[in-house]
Nucleic acid binder design. Structure first.
Lengths: 199, 199
DNA sequence: ACTCGATGCTAGCACCGCTAGACAACCGAG
DNA sequence: CTCGGTTGTCTAGCGGTGCTAGCATCGAGT
């Protein structure tokens, strides 16, 4: 069955190519520029090929979103584990927040695919895809220790995440001046993180 | 020049009709359903008429956004002034937050026009339209008193607004379960509002 | 009463997401 | 080695989008 295996491999390769190309095009020119025609041309296949891999444009966005979620989780864990342990939770939370906003700023198209556009992915649901759950888990790990007494860590993480999301989207849409983004982040961390002992 | 005045009046009426119809259609079926053809049919004119009032669809969204911003400002002021003064700033901020999120939930299309879609409006800029400035001012009035010592009230308001915006958008997009929305709001208010004296 | 400019219309452009149906290339069987 | 059938890809096209050119009609001012 080597022939069939080869075909499956090639097919998987092409699927990765589609997702990577869609992402690249979106980062370069925005999601509006990601049309099935342009995407097909870039991968050097005709449009219907896209539909043999994905149900439609929405699913392609969803695939980019999943990829992005996995990367975001890695990025966040790297940022928090990189912060000096001696500096306590405050430093970890700050590193987490900055890493999150940095990711959103660096990969706006991927961020949009995850949280702004409709990728057809189920959130906050039992059958939420693993990468999305894992992204949330990466936040939870660091934020749980500053949730405060009697506060559900999950709920606290949701609130913190929402706040970061608000900063990310409003800043990128030009609703908030980019200049003082860092000060806003610090202010948010100061207020939201209930500090057990130190300041 | 009564003739000309009448024409101008009729023209202004028709412009209001366009905006109101666009808003209505968006609230009923979402902004995707607001196409120039459908909109033209509803106002009982042909498509090109729309373009004699607005540069394009974007400007129509912008007009809805401005209308919404004015309403939001009124709503927020009503909510904060309605809160019993005796209960202190905490109650006012809570009322403000709930009013904001309630507005976003009640008028999702208008909220999208303001903060999610591109209406071509300049934000955080000197020539930002008055209704938008006023909406921000309505937030600032109540939030300034809980910004805390040494914290720029404007910056604090931006952070608070961003957090509310994050909750609003993530909740409405199904990214956060709607069930505990109120608890999230209270948690946010508890943490962000620096309370001068009482609890 | 007639001219002429303003105004709204029909028709059409280029593009969108998506799909039906024709066609070619390849595989396994005889 | 040839043939039949399946698998896969392409061309062409559908109904929709935002937007615009150019014509026809209507009404105001002389």
């Amino acid at each position: 069955m080597s022939v069939q295996e080869r075909k499956e491999r090639e097919r998987a390769d092409r699927e990765r190519l589609i997702v990577a190309t869609a992402r690249e095009l979106a980062e370069q020119q925005g999601w509006d520029a990601v049309t099935t025609r342009r995407l097909a041309e870039r991968i050097e296949y005709s449009q219907p090929v896209l539909y043999s891999h994905f149900r439609g444009k929405r699913e392609i966005i969803g695939a980019v979103a999943l990829q992005g979620a996995a990367e975001l989780a890695v990025t966040l864990r790297a940022a928090t584990s990189g912060a000096p342990a001696a500096e306590g939770p405050r430093a970890r939370v700050s590193a987490l927040a900055h890493a999150y906003l940095d990711f959103a700023g660096r990969h706006p198209a991927v961020y949009d695919a995850m949280f702004q556009l409709d990728g057809g992915l189920p959130f906050a649901h039992e059958d939420t895809p693993q990468p999305l759950k894992d992204g949330f888990a990466a936040l939870l790990e660091t934020l749980a220790e500053v949730a405060g007494d009697g506060v559900d860590p999950g709920l606290f993480t949701e609130v913190f995440w929402a706040s970061l999301h608000g900063l990310a989207t409003l800043t990128r849409a030009g609703r908030l001046p980019r200049a003082e983004a860092a000060r806003r982040t610090e202010l948010l961390v100061d207020r939201l993180a209930a500090l057990p002992a130190d300041a």
